[in-house]
Simulated assay, not measured.
Amino acid sequence: MPRRFLQRYLPHPDTLRRRRSLRFVSHLIGNPSLWMLSRRSVANAFMVGLFSALLPIPFQMLVAAFGAWLLRCNLPLSVGLVWITNPLTMPVIFYGNYRLGAWLLSTPAREAPARLSTRWIADQMLDILPILALGSLVSAVVAGLVGNLVIRLIWRWHVSRSWKRRRLKRRHARRSAVDDL
């Protein structure tokens, strides 16, 4: 994965440290290992971010930030990936997690009523929550591991492709130098 491409979209640590709302964690934000863009740090950031995004809990960004600090991976990537589950995608993702949990437990999934309400959800929460938690945990672990592996493979492919390009460029330069003699 190209570093320049990622650096173009990631914020600079100094701009985040200067924000008034983040002053209480400015000593953590300044840690250089949380801003490094290496194959390991980016792949682990994807793992932490995808894992945190698929958990049906509040404060997913804090979980991702703590995971990035714990694994010393890229902080902005892991926190930014949590927004995969935004208000538009969250119902679909969590319903899929619920269906996965129901399938794993071999229980029939509850069908939503024709008119969905918060009252219905609150009444069904005790039955739905363990199934949703299991499905979410399984999908979070699988997505995190697959994300880590895919990023490592993409990064490796990109590096080998740039090596081949450099080798061909050098070979072409040598041939043109020989032809000029």
Rank of each mutant, 00 (worst) to 15 (best):
R3A: 14
Q7D: 13
R8H: 12
P11Q: 07
P13F: 01
P13K: 11
R18L: 10
R23I: 09
V25H: 02
L28V: 14
G30F: 12
N31A: 14
W35R: 00
R40W: 14
S41P: 04
V42P: 01
N44F: 08
F46H: 07
F46I: 13
M47I: 09
V48C: 03
V48G: 01
V48R: 07
L50F: 08
L50Y: 05
S52V: 07
I57V: 15
M61R: 02
L62T: 15
V63N: 08
F66I: 15
G67F: 11
W69D: 01
W69I: 12
L71S: 11
L75Y: 06
V82L: 09
N86D: 05
V92T: 14
F94L: 06
A102K: 00
L104M: 09
S106D: 07
T107I: 15
T107Y: 00
P108W: 00
A109C: 04
A109E: 01
A109T: 05
E111A: 14
P113V: 12
P113I: 05
R115M: 14
R115E: 15
L116A: 04
S117H: 07
T118L: 11
L132M: 09
S139I: 08
A140L: 02
V141A: 06
V142N: 03
L145Q: 11
G147W: 00
G147M: 03
G147T: 02
V150P: 04
R156G: 05
W157H: 10
H158Q: 13
R161M: 08
R161H: 06
R165F: 12
R170A: 13
H172K: 12
A173Y: 04
A173C: 09
R174Y: 08
V178Y: 07
